[in-house]
Amino acid sequence: MDKEQHCPDLLSELADFMDGTATIEVCAEIEKHMAECPDCRVMVDTLEKTIYLYRNREERFELPSGFRERLFTSLHLEDYLKD
């Protein structure tokens, strides 16, 4: 596989492919290429894993202790803190 030519062209479509907004033709082309190109397969797998790791960490994120109280006080919204 010609990495200097074909792979970069393919990779430029990756954002749409990964976000599910690529056309059926583009998806088919990328799937076909990945079946033949182990490097691109690894690249896409690790790219998806990268995004997953960041999203997973974000889902487990907790606000710091006293966040709401500090914010409401700084904005002079103390009267609405009880909610």
Binding site: L11, S12, V42, D45, T46, K49, L53
Partner: peptide, 29 residues
């Protein structure tokens, strides 16, 4: 094109899930 050519091609998806959750991994993120 330089942005698009991957340089690191090690497949690390196979690591045990615990490896992705360590404090050191979080620092890397």
């Amino acid at each position: 094109k330089g942005d698009m050519v991957p340089r690191q091609l090690e497949d690390w998806c196979c690591l045990p899930e615990d490896e992705f959750m360590t404090a050191e991994a979080m620092v890397q993120l």
